[in-house]
């Protein structure tokens, strides 16, 4: 299968120039999108759909930090195994419990929920920078994988906060 970074002519690094990625994505789609082949024979239409599908998936993965980190780790032989490997540090497990309790206690309080969401986002940004260092600068794949697992938990929690806010909003 075509490698995502080379598809867009980008260096295989965690730090991605998003503007360049978007430009390259559009250039690739401009060549392969099925709309360009709607009047062409079936074989070409099929190949166009496969390429356009690949370009969309590659763009989605590289555009978003967590899927991008997981992809890079997989390329380097580390399976994040997010679903099964939950052996996180006791400190982080404690933190998880605290966060959960805060969310549950604030279900009716939009301001508190928003504050929690902001705090999480800020922590995530700091951790993503750690991921970048662990992938691009002083490679430590296990540390990167551990960070990614934590970030995945935090992202999920943030979605729960968003859902709770939507619930509040629609009442």
């Amino acid at each position: 299968m075509q490698e995502y970074y080379s598809l867009f002519g980008l260096p295989e690094r965690f730090a991605v120039d998003v503007a360049k990625l978007d430009t390259a994505y559009r250039q690739v789609q401009a060549q392969v999108h099925p709309d360009k082949f709607a009047h062409r024979p079936e074989t070409e239409r099929r190949i166009a759909m496969q390429w356009a599908t690949l370009a969309n998936e590659a763009h989605r993965v590289l555009r978003n930090p967590l899927p991008r980190a997981r992809y890079l780790l997989e390329r380097r032989g580390v399976d994040v195994e997010a679903e099964r490997n939950t052996s996180m540090s006791p400190a982080f497990l404690m933190q998880q419990i605290e966060w959960r309790e805060s969310v549950d206690d604030s279900r009716e309080d939009a301001e508190a929920l928003q504050r929690l969401g902001k705090d999480l986002e800020r922590d995530e940004r700091v951790m993503l920078d750690d991921v970048r260092r662990a992938l691009d600068e002083e490679p430590d794949l296990q540390a990167a994988a551990e960070l990614v697992r934590r970030l995945m938990f935090m992202e999920k929690l943030r979605h729960e906060i968003d859902d709770a806010l939507i619930q509040l909003d629609s009442h």
């Binding site: 002519g9 250039q27 690739v28 060549q31 392969v32 024979p41 070409e44 190949i47």
Partner: peptide
Amino acid sequence: SAATGEFAARRMDQAIRKALTGNR
């Protein structure tokens, strides 16, 4: 169609390469 499948794939490959070279 079958005889031209590989040809079509190579043409697509070439088109992408050209587009990205332009970008750089």
